[in-house]
Design a protein around this nucleic acid. Structure first.
Length: 121
DNA sequence: GCCCTGACCGCCA
DNA sequence: ATGGCGGCCAGGG
């Protein structure tokens, strides 16, 4: 079959990603989120010394090298909300992974008791 | 440099 | 509960 030109955006040069201290820090913080818990993008940003830059956390997650095996599913939106569209593959996958570690997910939201503030660790 | 687009957030109608 | 909006900041065209 004919391979069409991919419409997918080219991501950042991997080599450069590894050299960005902010991204490294964000990835590190995410790696410390305990099993069975979930936290927010904003919390990760603060813990990484980047208050107010929740969006950058999203970017960091999106561009993270697979080899890091980050617990990406433990990062959710404010109020425990899974940010992916409810019908999406990613949404189901995230909910599945969370439940697999005992986190209750109701209507796309992580139960408050499972939420944790990284700064309190 | 300008403009649009986000795995965001919080406020407010 | 829900949608809109401004604020936020980094990438990419």
């Amino acid at each position: 079959m004919i391979r069409q030109r991919t419409p997918v955006k080219r991501s950042l040069n991997p080599a450069r990603r590894f050299n960005d201290p902010a991204l490294e820090e964000i990835w590190h913080v995410i790696s410390t989120i305990p099993r069975g818990k979930a936290t927010t993008y904003g919390s990760v940003a603060r813990a990484a010394g980047l208050p107010g830059r929740a969006r950058q956390v999203g970017f960091a997650l999106r561009t993270a090298p697979d080899g890091l095996n980050l617990p990406w599913h433990r990062v959710v939106g404010a109020g425990g909300r899974i940010v992916f569209p409810a019908s999406s593959r990613s949404h189901r996958e995230q909910a599945r992974r969370l439940r697999a570690e005992g986190v209750r997910v109701v209507k796309g939201r992580v139960t408050p008791s499972a939420m944790t503030d990284l700064e309190a660790l």
